[in-house]
């Protein structure tokens, strides 16, 4: 069995261009003590790995690398775990190729 090399998403995001709207996160995680299964699944399902577990076992989001796909909205908005919207006009990811 060969060992899977670990994939560094940060390196991938480095190729992209972003205009970060500092201080205005377009996605917010509802404060919680124990994360729901939906929220936990985002640790793996987010293609930009924006979701991470803090040392208290809660799920946090950093939206700077978000590629605005909407996956977390589909999984987590219904359960009320997150508030999801688009960045303000002109901000966020800027695809050169798409």
């Amino acid at each position: 069995m060969s060992i899977e090399p670990s994939v560094r998403v940060e390196d991938k995001l480095f190729y992209n261009r972003y205009l970060v709207d500092a201080g205005r996160a377009h996605i917010k995680v509802r404060p919680h003590t124990t994360p729901s299964p939906e929220l936990l699944s985002m640790l793996k399902a987010c293609p930009a790995r924006c979701y991470e577990l803090n040392d208290k076992g809660q799920v946090e989001i950093t939206v700077d690398g978000c590629i605005e796909c909407g996956t977390c909205r589909v999984i987590c908005e219904g359960s009320g775990d997150i508030e999801w919207s688009y960045p303000r006009g002109g901000y966020g990811v800027l695809f050169k190729f798409g």
Binding site: K12, Y15, A48, G70, V74, F95, K96, F97
Partner: peptide, 9 residues
């Protein structure tokens, strides 16, 4: 040379 990484539904 990779120049972009994108995701979409």
């Amino acid at each position: 040379e990779v120049k972009e990484y994108a995701a979409h539904l």
